[in-house]
Write a protein that binds this DNA or RNA. Structure first.
Lengths: 341, 341
DNA sequence: TTGTACGCGTTATCAC
DNA sequence: GTGATAACGCGTACAA
């Protein structure tokens, strides 16, 4: 077996409790014994056992990460690695580890979260999404377990710490940008309607049209999953409209979907931005590598992750920490997929 | 606090050990008491405490995931989410959780691994890469700690369980494919030379040329990090050659880099595949979305992850499990970035 | 078939 | 300042 605190104690001729205090750097231990104990630890190659510490402490220094049930789709989106990197950096700064729930569907994930939480595996949880009805959220709230959400809560906005963009405003800005280029036939291709981010971006789109006195047409509003394939399907649907009714600009709720859109348009012989402008969201790494390079609303994905873990840790370490709404800036990055109407 | 085994015991009028046995589904407990205890557990909403269990068991049911030190780069590559999904599914099938080391550089990651391992946080470790000199590998081997590697070990190939493609053969196949199209001026753009995968793919490239009696030119061999930017730099370098010395085909060791290549070629007015063929590796999701769609060697990334966790768990659960070399199939997927010379 | 008692490696609360 | 001792929640010999 591994070398324990007791071994160190014997070796240094002190009590186990003293060793424990040295590890915690307790000020009431004399420098002399500290030295002696540290030497012993080094000599024996001692490393603290986190499991035992967790049991005594009732704290694990681990954050749980919860993906949406459709994790295969979620993983594929470049959003995920970027937000993960932010989470990782934020966690690392406070010496927290990251643990993921495994499972491919809602049921698996739900059970995974319960195991994590009840099993005491994690000190807190990050929800990497926001859904309209979410029993995981309900569960965490009921147990008053520390968690933060990336995205805007569907309800109880003031009782949930969350890190989000102002997606309503971002989408309104984006739509206004297209309007300012002279487009009036403006379609919206959104993601899963269960996701709050879709809802918010749709609202922003509608609001912008409304303020510009442009009637909202239901056949200009499409919903697909956040995937390449979704972009294709949506385009095909729009292009079945009679020529004079086709939109001249598309607002696409996700870059990956936009990539599918571009691809499909290309194979249909429709050129971007001459025939059709495309503006999307997220500004992931390959946006600028698309053909043509994608204009996209940068939502600072990394920051979303970073602040999420920072605030979660705050809530863990101070249970009375007030709920916060953290808004990350967005910015329209103009490239070559958008042009004058 | 949470409801414990003792609470259940009291409620069901049995001893704590009986409850424990019911959880383990010990056959020596009568069906009647099992029912009684299970009813009590349900009634009280009992969930086992993993931490306590881990301490008693000396096992955590957690797998550790180790990324290369340059994790920011690694995360960005679509390879990562895909392999992660495979790992996740494999782990989930055996009820294992996944934990990641956090940290942005070699030093952080190294310390993170030591903490994970010595701290007893994980039962085993997956190395998601293979480097030429790797002290993490050395450490794990010295401690005889269960681990598997994704990729080919630089040394001790027969003493390390690993899941890999035959990258030598894959690269040779790929080069031969280009040769069969009539290309003779064939360049290789590889990744980080510290990575074994780069080394293997370079070897395969060289071997194919050698067998075709084509001399190897050092200025046709470039190395960049696995990133979009790397593709750009490499192309610029090659295009500085006099026209008649320029390669007519590129073998690129990574799709992401190939995307950068395509992009740069486009802006230089060089058309693919008419002027130059491009063949890359990995066949990640967006390969077919590139312009033109990328011909790529599919290496079954998902399978790499899936088998890695499966075999790691085998090693954990049976410490005498022999070392294995698991080879995942590869296949050239021809799209529009390759053509006759 | 079930109960008792101890150990897993720490931390924390007392004493001294 | 430092040393016993009791938790933390569970698994498991050993008894009964």
């Amino acid at each position: 077996m591994s070398v324990t605190i007791k071994d160190v104690a014997k070796f240094a001729n002190v009590a186990p409790s003293t060793v424990s205090r040295v590890i915690a750097n307790n000020p009431r231990i004399s420098d002399k014994t500290k030295e002696k104990v540290r030497a012993a630890m080094k000599e024996l190659g001692y490393h603290p056992n986190f499991i035992a510490r967790s049991l005594a402490n009732q704290s694990t220094q681990v954050l749980g990460l919860v993906t949406p049930g459709s994790s295969d789709v979620f993983f594929q989106n470049p959003f995920f690695p970027t937000v993960l990197r932010g989470l990782s950096v934020g966690a690392h700064e406070k010496q927290y580890a990251l643990q993921m729930v495994t499972g491919q569907n809602d049921e698996d994930i739900y059970n995974g979260v319960i195991q994590m939480v009840q099993g005491g595996r994690v000190d807190g949880v990050v929800l990497l999404y926001s859904k309209v009805e979410d029993r995981i959220l309900t569960y965490l709230r009921e147990r008053n377990f520390p968690f933060v959400m990336i995205g805007k809560p569907y309800s109880f906005v003031n009782e949930i710490t969350h890190v989000d963009n102002n997606n309503f405003q971002a989408s309104k800005d984006a739509a206004n940008f297209l309007l300012s280029l002279g487009h009036t036939r403006l379609a919206f291709i959104g993601g899963d309607v269960d996701l709050v981010v879709t809802v918010e971006r749709l609202k922003g789109y509608k609001k912008a049209l409304e303020e510009a006195d442009i009637p909202i047409r239901q056949n200009y509003i499409l919903h697909q999953s956040f995937l390449l394939e979704g972009g294709r399907t949506a385009v095909c649907e729009l292009m079945e409209l009679p020529l004079h009714e086709r939109p001249t600009a598309l607002l696409v709720a996700d870059d990956l979907m936009a990539l599918g859109v571009l691809n499909t348009l290309n194979s249909l012989g429709i050129s971007v931005p001459e025939d059709l402008s495309v503006l999307s969201f997220n500004n992931v790494l390959f946006s600028e590598m698309a053909r043509p390079p994608l204009s996209s609303v940068d939502i600072n994905i990394y920051e979303l992750g970073y602040h999420a873990s920072k605030h979660l840790i705050k809530r863990i370490e101070n249970h009375d920490e007030p709920f916060k709404r953290v808004i990350i800036e967005h910015k329209i990055v103009t490239r070559q997929s958008t042009g004058q109407a």
